[in-house]
Design a protein around this nucleic acid. Structure first.
Lengths: 154, 154
DNA sequence: TATTGTTATACTCTATAACTATA
DNA sequence: TATAGTTATAGAGTATAACAATA
């Protein structure tokens, strides 16, 4: 057992300089911690995103929410099904367009979401405690640039 | 059509302040661009990670590589199968342990990887051009902190 | 003609458990 | 007993295509 090639021995080469690789490693860790932290709510980061949009924008259609989050509307069906089964969100028939459903938090959903947000903020604080003054605003600004960038093909 | 609820009308609420949400949106965009950019190589970010480790650490076992990348060893099987089918990586029997395979780039794999790295660096430059002086080093440092953080349960 | 929610489908990624051959 | 590679499997996430109802 002279050499078990533990992680410390590894040369990561170019990976150590690539923002994409570092982003992925960081995101996986945050995602896992979020899920552990919010497991008692049965809420994943994806579900939390939908809840947050619904809470601040009551009455939006499923398609509008999918667009806001950068997802396909087909993926919204099972998500909203799950949130309805948890009695936190409800579909109401749109008054203006009978094709679409307007989404709202239920009464229970509002209390549920308020409690959930507290937990999410604890999770967030757990990671932002790693940041020095000004670094949180800066990294969010940088990540916004990365998310909005429509790169040239060249 | 007075209000189609286009993305500009959306109130993202707490999502706009959460590092986890911003990380995800940024990473999805980088991932998509990487895949488009490297599609002619048939290489995904995950495959590129394995190739990079093999290139810099020839002779490692599959399990050692999986650990280095934070993946499960069972996921390595199809990855290495694919890279072998592309004739860029080869499994060689380990001289010291007949249970394990040592991984190496093939001759073709070395040229392939060199060309691939050029493309990846173009992709990287496309995004890091959004950064000001010093921001790249800072964001990589911050992402390293996020990836290494083992949060308390409390 | 176009759009909404939906279904069916498929593909990737990821993880777990169990098997075999070795150690 | 423990570990390496493997297989089978299952879950989540994501995307496309097509359909019925409606616009």
């Amino acid at each position: 057992m002279a050499n078990q090639n533990s992680s410390e021995d590894i040369d990561y080469g170019i990976l150590d300089t690539l923002v994409g690789y570092k982003l992925r490693r960081a995101q996986v860790n945050l995602f896992n911690h979020f899920s552990e932290h919010c497991s008692r709510f049965g809420i994943t980061p994806g579900l939390f995103g939908v809840l947050s949009i619904v809470e601040r924008n009551p009455g939006l259609t499923q398609t509008a929410i999918a667009n806001a989050l950068g997802n396909d509307r087909s993926a919204m069906v099972s998500v909203v099904d799950r949130l309805e089964a948890m009695n936190v969100v409800e579909r109401k028939p749109s008054t203006s367009d009978r094709r679409s459903h307007a989404l709202f938090l239920t009464k229970h959903g509002e209390a549920f979401y308020a409690e959930l947000v507290e937990e999410v903020l604890k999770h967030e604080a757990n990671f932002t405690s790693l940041l020095n003054e000004g670094e949180k605003a800066l990294i969010i600004d940088i990540l916004d640039r990365f998310a909005a960038h429509a790169p040239s093909k060249a």
